[in-house]
Amino acid sequence: MELEKLKIIVEKKFPTFDESEPIVALFNPQQISITKTGWQGQGNSLQPADASASLTVELFFDTSLLKAGKSSIEIGSIIGLDSFGSSRLQDVRKYTRKIYQLTEKKSGLGDPSRPPICKLKWGRNTVLFQGVLKQLTKTFTRFLADGTPVRAKLNCSFEEWIPPEFKQKEQNPIDDPIRIVRRGETLTSIAAEEYNDPALWRVIAAANRLDNPRQITPGQRLTVPPL
């Protein structure tokens, strides 16, 4: 069985994601933690917590390990030659830079004051989490003689993100039409009927905070926000 790598699918233009150019982990993580606060208070004063879920993961990068088990052609693609003809490992920042940039604001998302939403995906159809990269700590642990870093670990903290307009609609649900799911319907077919665009199924999924958009059931009530 082919080894599946953890991928980060980055929002291209709200509400679509660029599945064609994911950020692929150099090595799969050993552990992923997801935290969600469901209730707050004590005893009879418990109230639902209005808190987003968070995911933390440590990603490991080491360009020296890329050489192991590679053919000479493959090795040639990951190392260069200096002026004296000796092999030189790649700067690990080539691999960490794309993740580091996920903390920065990105234009074209409808709201210029936020970074892009990311989907963490491991396996062909398994989305582990969707949110923004809230915090990142990058630690270099191995260097070449000239100071070039070749090993690093990234401690990443992602926070669940829901567009502000959807949060407002959750507080005022009367503003949005409610649709009862009929037998045989999918989010794609509902989006095609409501918006004339099946690709907008993610808008409905986000508005209803669906953990698994592929599993909707007949009789289920869905909020269909206007665009």
Rank of each mutant, 00 (worst) to 15 (best):
G110S: 06
G110V: 13
D111F: 09
P112C: 00
P112W: 00
P115E: 12
P115Q: 12
P116M: 09
I117E: 11
C118L: 01
C118R: 00
K121Q: 15
K121V: 15
K121Y: 05
K121M: 15
K121P: 06
W122M: 07
G123I: 09
R124I: 12
N125T: 12
N125M: 10
N125C: 11
T126A: 12
T126Y: 11
L128P: 02
F129I: 02
F129A: 00
F129M: 02
Q130S: 15
G131E: 04
G131N: 05
V132N: 06
L133K: 02
L133N: 02
L133M: 05
K134R: 14
L136F: 08
T137H: 09
K138F: 05
K138I: 08
T139F: 07
F140E: 15
T141A: 05
T141Y: 06
T141F: 08
R142H: 10
R142P: 06
F143Q: 01
F143H: 01
L144E: 14
A145S: 15
A145V: 10
A145L: 11
D146V: 02
D146T: 02
D146P: 01
D146Q: 04
G147P: 06
T148L: 13
T148S: 12
T148H: 09
T148G: 10
P149V: 07
P149F: 01
